[in-house]
Design a protein around this nucleic acid. Structure first.
Lengths: 137, 137
DNA sequence: ATTGATTATGCAAGTTGCGTGCATATGGAT
DNA sequence: ATCCATATGCACGCAACTTGCATAATCAAT
């Protein structure tokens, strides 16, 4: 019914088990008593920053180690991707990202536990998140 | 006409000379071509954090001294808030901002006397500026 | 390249929320 | 108590958000 609740439900669903398509996600929501269309699911996933990787939807964030310092990836507007790392590892992570030379990345700057990644446009943002997440997982 | 413009005008008016009442402020706005009622002026002053002191309205914090290093906050586009600090204090201020964990803040990077604060959208910018000022007042 | 499956999006309708003025309540000073 | 200044509940209008539908764009597999 409510957008926020639906998005929360989506998060718990994709955390519970791998989900391959928006249509199956929509069905699961329906079973949980939350009616929605594929359109809305698509927009929700976009807003939540969920990304499809290895054939299923996941959140680009970790709760522990295993990703060589990278903790999360987020968006700020249309031209900036913000990566969070474990303390002190931002530079190391940034070096690795730079080394991969993604064409959509215009430039990066690293602080202590944060990296700003400038990209050309909104389309590039999603591609970059997907690529970087793949690089570190 | 527009709320944001009107509030900017109010700020420049109370900076220009001491103003004693909301009614005179309203008249000055009218002369400047900005129609408004006393009700709106009252709400604007509230939102702007303007306070009446010694019989006239003033901004509580025009100088940055005593704000633990923070000097100014400005906007760059829709997704970036730029904070200036006293030399060398950017990291310390940034740590304090991070520790407050505002949900609108996507990430921060500190230099020597400047901090870039990435936020999600234009709405978040206003909220963040207000929050940070509150944090350092 | 073609086809089928999956995801994104322009548009229109419904709904919500914000900004505002009016009227009036509250507060403050003498 | 009265007068002046300021705050606020209410209602209305407009702008922004949310959504579904239909369809376009993208992707995967052959």
């Amino acid at each position: 019914m409510n957008k926020r609740d639906r998005q929360q439900k989506i998060l718990s669903l994709i955390r519970a088990k791998p989900i391959a398509t928006q249509e199956t996600l929509r069905e699961l929501l329906e079973n949980a008593g939350v009616a929605a269309t594929q359109s809305s699911v698509s927009r929700d996933l976009e807003e939540l920053g969920v990304v499809k990787h290895h054939g299923h939807y996941t959140l680009p964030r970790t709760n522990g180690a295993g990703a060589r310092g990278l903790v999360s990836l987020d968006l700020a507007g249309d031209n900036l991707v913000v990566a969070r790392t474990h303390p002190g590892l931002a530079s190391a992570v940034a070096v690795e990202i730079d080394a991969a030379t993604f064409p959509e990345i215009v430039g990066t700057i690293a602080g202590e536990d944060t990296i700003f990644i400038a990209v050309r446009d909104q389309k590039a943002e999603r591609a970059v998140i997907k690529s970087i997440w793949g690089l570190f997982s």
